[in-house]
């Protein structure tokens, strides 16, 4: 390139398409939804959309770090199902001793977090210590967790004790100042995630590792440790998402969390994180999650297009997002 001096910026320059693109798409969807259905912007609908986005969203924030550092995790959907099943089993088993109350709920939460952390650690260790492709490792663990939860449920459904279910329902349905807990937790995860990604050494290191692991190694960064931590973080976030998910239905089965991994990856990519690593933004992922949820919501609320075409429309959006990313590469 020939420009050797940065031309001083004059006036207002539009941010690049990769920044505006997802935001613009989200705004368009909101305008579209509002004009098609008067209930779209009602508090009930907005709360519903955000709360349902929270599960995928919390996981997608973790996925943003994994992908930014040059990895991938296909196992998060079945991991969530497995963690949910385990959490239900442990809580039911401890019910006679602990009784219904806060200690039992805390035990369930602890189990979920610990299980998620261990699952993430296992993925991470296999990938970084044994040097197996992330795709292969997590494809394998995806099958393992899915199969384990089916086995635990004996092919059926694992249900929380009925009384216990009533006791923990508020975790999903209640909240503070009219904002439900899943939304609050989602917001916290996003804020912390965005700060970690853009303002801390770890975030910088994750992007560096994804951009070029040799450069990172030569710069004294422990490539394996950075990658490992991203998988552990993701596992932990899967645990958090599960804690919020279980109170909603109070059950887990082999169909819990199916395709969550693809929705999470899609949200990350739509948000502008580069699939091959090296650049990631958490706020973009949030927009990606909201775009996917809104499409689903609008199709359900309106009769414009059959809701059965939801997957097709999401697919088109994902491919468009990647084409936009390519445009960035070519122009820079």
């Amino acid at each position: 390139m020939s420009d050797t001096t940065a031309p001083p910026r004059r006036g207002f320059t539009l941010p690049p398409m990769t920044v505006i693109g997802p935001v613009l798409a989200l705004v368009l969807l909101i305008v579209l939804g509002a004009s098609l259905n008067s209930n779209f912007l009602s508090a009930a609908n907005v709360t519903n959309v955000l709360a349902r986005s929270a599960f995928i969203g919390i996981i997608a924030v973790g996925m943003t770090f994994v992908i930014t550092a040059g990895g991938l995790d296909l196992s998060v959907g079945s991991m969530a199902a497995f963690v949910a099943g385990l959490m239900i089993l442990v809580m039911n088993a401890a019910l006679p001793t602990l009784g219904i109350g806060l200690p039992l709920v805390l035990l369930g939460m602890g189990v979920a977090l610990l299980a998620g952390l261990c699952a993430g650690l296992l993925n991470g260790l296999l990938i970084t210590k044994l040097g197996i492709e992330a795709f292969i490792v997590t494809l394998g663990s995806m099958g393992i967790y899915r199969s384990l939860v089916t086995w635990l449920a004996d092919g059926g459904t694992l249900s929380l004790n009925f009384e216990l279910r009533r006791f923990i329902r508020p975790i999903y349905f209640d909240g503070l100042f009219g904002v439900t807990w899943p939304i609050i937790v989602f917001a916290l995860v996003v804020i912390i995630g965005e700060i970690v990604m853009s303002r801390t050494s770890f975030g910088r290191h994750a992007a560096a590792v994804g951009s070029n692991e040799h450069v990172s190694h030569y710069s004294g960064i422990s490539v394996a440790r950075v990658r490992l931590v991203t998988y552990v973080m993701l596992g932990l976030l899967v645990g958090i998402a599960t804690i919020l998910y279980v109170p909603r239905l109070g059950s887990a089965s082999s169909s819990t969390g199916v395709l969550w991994e693809l929705e999470a990856i899609a949200a990350v990519i739509i948000g502008g994180t580069v699939l091959k690593g090296g650049f990631g933004r958490v706020w973009g992922t949030v927009i990606g999650v909201l775009i996917l949820s809104l499409i689903d919501n609008i199709l359900n609320l309106t009769s414009l297009v059959s809701p059965y075409l939801n997957g097709a429309i999401q697919g088109v959006i994902i491919v468009l997002a990647v084409i936009l990313q390519r445009g960035r590469k070519a122009s820079s």
């Binding site: 992007a207 560096a208 951009s211 070029n212 450069v215 190694h217 030569y218 004294g220 090296g278 650049f279």
Partner: peptide, 18 residues
């Protein structure tokens, strides 16, 4: 190019990486 600098990033993160 392959071991020294993150070619996709601007100067600042490259300078302070180590």
């Amino acid at each position: 190019k392959l071991r020294g600098l993150l070619l996709d990033m601007p100067m600042r993160p490259n300078l302070t990486l180590q």
